[in-house]
Amino acid sequence: MTKTIFITGASRGFGKLWAEALLKQGHQVVATARNTDSLKDLQQQFGDAILPLQLDVNDREACFEAIGQAKDHFGAIDVLINNAGFGLFGAIEETSEQEAREQIETNVFGLLWVTQAVLPVMREQGHGHIVQVSSTLGLVTLPVLGIYNASKFAVEGLSETLAAEVKDFGIKVTIVEPNGFATDWAGASAAHTQPMQAYEPVKEAFQAGLTDDSFGVPEATTDAILKLIDTPNPPLRLFLGKVALPWVRQVYEQRLAEWEEWQEVAVAAHGK
């Protein structure tokens, strides 16, 4: 069954890979990017099946306009993939106000604006699937990625709540949580704080803990996304990569053990 899929952040990385895979599968794709020049190759290959739209997700009004254009052009929006975002590398103390605001603005508010824009369309249709690209770092954390961690924790809470609010409208929500992948997320797409010498040991330890096996192959994710789009009962959460589940399981076991250790104190704090 052909579906119309709206993807943000489609100029590179996961967004472009998934857009191409979906087009090859016969779907119609609305691909957004700040600069649509990067989508010309897909236009040449797939013609009218792709609608490239210039979009800065930080502009709420523009998000509503883009969703409206997509609806008018294809007649429906069956799936939204909220993929736009970037990583900010740096210790918490190093992070400027502007850097922190830009990270949250794009990763959280940008995702929120596009989500809000598509909901009336999907409610009117009586169906839809919203795919929120989060991260394993929305469940567990790494040092020197604190504001990014915070942004993805926010995406997790927002999206889980959304799933409960819209299920009776026939709208499904999936939170996709990749572990590290060898995209340019940590390269050209990333932002970096002004370094402080005091945090160099933390950064060195972080780098030393990374291995080639820590990062998945981006192209290998396309089959998972195609399956996710096609399934009639998609999961609320989906890891991408082999590192994610063992890591999250270990951290959650530690959290549960600590909560249990302090449960007596917690119960006494209830007061009755």
Rank of each mutant, 00 (worst) to 15 (best):
N107P: 04
N83Q: 03
G128L: 11
V118I: 14
S96K: 08
A117Q: 06
L80H: 05
H127G: 13
Q132F: 02
F74P: 03
V121K: 04
G110I: 00
S96G: 12
G128Q: 09
Q116V: 08
F89E: 14
G110H: 02
D78H: 04
F74H: 01
G68F: 11
E102N: 12
D78C: 04
A84M: 05
F86P: 04
V131Q: 02
Q103H: 05
V118L: 10
F74R: 01
Q98L: 15
G90P: 08
Q116W: 03
A84H: 05
D78N: 09
L112I: 14
Q69C: 10
V79T: 03
G68A: 12
H73D: 06
G85D: 07
D78S: 05
E93W: 04
N83I: 00
S134P: 11
K71S: 14
G68D: 14
A70C: 07
A117V: 05
N82C: 02
E93N: 04
G126Y: 11
K71C: 06
G128S: 10
H73C: 06
L112N: 05
V131L: 11
S96L: 09
T136K: 10
A100G: 13
E93L: 09
G110S: 01
G110M: 01
D78I: 01
V121L: 07
K71I: 00
Q116R: 12
V133S: 03
V131H: 02
L112E: 02
H127E: 15
S96R: 05
Q69Y: 09
T115R: 04
R101D: 13
G128K: 08
L111V: 12
T95E: 07
E105V: 13
L80I: 09
G85C: 05
V121C: 04
D78G: 03
A76C: 15
G85E: 06
Q125P: 09
T95M: 12
A70Y: 04
A84C: 08
D78V: 01
N83H: 03
E105F: 08
N107A: 07
R101C: 00
Q125M: 13
W113D: 05
A84P: 06
S134Y: 10
G87M: 15
E97R: 14
